[in-house]
């Protein structure tokens, strides 16, 4: 017996993003704001369904993951970010893909 049927596997989407900040902030602060924004918009149940996680973040650029049916919720939540630790900020979406490899290889993310 298979541990988890392949047909029940969730389809994932990866989105590359970039923070634009008025004053420099740490990556941890950006990551926390990102998670809080998604949690605020879609709630705890939505957060669990979205299987949201910040895959990586370096110098304000990074990749987040969600399920394919919660992608637009995640993008909307990221759009609602207006400040990071008191400084004005915005989070732009660079690209969206179904595999991490494609996101990492995309020109806009490099």
């Amino acid at each position: 017996m298979k541990p988890f049927p392949a047909v029940l596997k969730e389809r994932r989407r990866y989105a590359a993003f970039k923070f634009t900040l008025e004053t420099p902030k740490t990556d941890e602060e950006c990551s926390k704001v990102l998670s809080n924004a998604v949690l605020t918009l879609i709630g705890e149940k939505g957060f669990a369904e979205a299987n949201f996680s910040v895959i990586e973040i370096r110098r304000g650029k990074g990749i987040v993951r969600s399920t394919h049916d919660r992608l637009y919720d995640m993008l909307a939540a990221m759009a609602f970010i207006s400040s990071v630790a008191g400084a004005r900020a915005k989070c732009d979406i660079l690209c969206v893909s179904g595999t991490l490899k494609t996101v990492r290889q995309s020109k806009v993310f490099k």
Binding site: E22, Y72, L75, A76, A79, S82, A89, D92, I93
Partner: peptide, 21 residues
Amino acid sequence: AWEARAPEQLIALGVLLGLNP
């Protein structure tokens, strides 16, 4: 400039409000 958003994010708002992509 801080309030300007990319088209993808406006699309995401539309989907959030009930439009399809």
